[in-house]
């Protein structure tokens, strides 16, 4: 067969802008795998998560860091995301091998596109699009929420005092970037 090569072109690859001291960028090689807890076997799955990632799955609306800088986000009673860095398109088999079949896993890497917002303007900018209360008392480091911003579903995770990881659908990446950038421009 002929030599055809597939090139990876994630939609927001290379986005990196500064607005004063606040940085907006698309993290490289973000991998996301969903973990579904089988009905009736949740305890075994939680155990497998603990041994696979070295961390307990947190309560819904929270995230924790596990081995190899993997962030475990609990989205609901029977669903979680593992978010980590991996360039190759084999994130799902990787997580499946860590969990040894104790959970249903689905590759979500290309379903989403990610933006990191880090700096003193982050919260002020998000005020323009995010209905969630991001006051540190209400949304502390590690907190995670799925919500809607400018008609787009967004998973927002506070990764630091002034840092937020935003995930939204990859097909609408352009609108998503525009929404966040406009917010930053409007508050700069």
């Amino acid at each position: 067969m002929a030599d055809f090569t597939l090139i990876a072109e994630p939609p927001l690859k290379g986005v990196d802008h500064n607005f004063g001291d606040t940085r907006l960028y698309a993290p490289d090689d973000l991998a996301i795998v969903s973990i579904a807890l089988p009905l009736g076997a949740e305890d075994a799955t939680l155990q497998a998560v603990k041994s696979g990632f070295g961390a307990d799955l947190p309560a819904p609306g929270q995230s924790v860091m596990g081995n190899d800088d993997t962030r475990l986000v609990r989205l609901g009673p029977d669903q979680a995301f593992a978010i980590f860095t991996r360039a190759t398109p084999d994130a799902e088999p990787h997580v499946q091998s860590l969990l040894k079949g104790a959970a249903y896993t689905t590759d979500q890497t290309d379903v989403w596109t990610g933006l990191m917002l880090d700096g003193p303007l982050a919260r002020t900018a998000l005020e323009r699009i995010c209905p969630i209360d991001l006051h540190p008392d209400a949304f502390a480091e590690g907190a995670a929420a799925r919500t809607v911003m400018e008609h787009l579903g967004v998973l927002i995770i506070r990764t630091g005092p002034d840092a937020f990881l935003l995930l939204s659908a990859s097909s609408s990446a352009g609108s998503f970037l525009h929404a966040v950038e406009t917010s930053l421009v409007n508050v700069t």
Partner: peptide
């Protein structure tokens, strides 16, 4: 409610 079924959208993923 007691069926072991899990759903997730992958429309944008593939």
């Amino acid at each position: 409610p007691d069926m072991d079924v899990h759903l997730i959208s992958t429309t944008d993923g593939w």
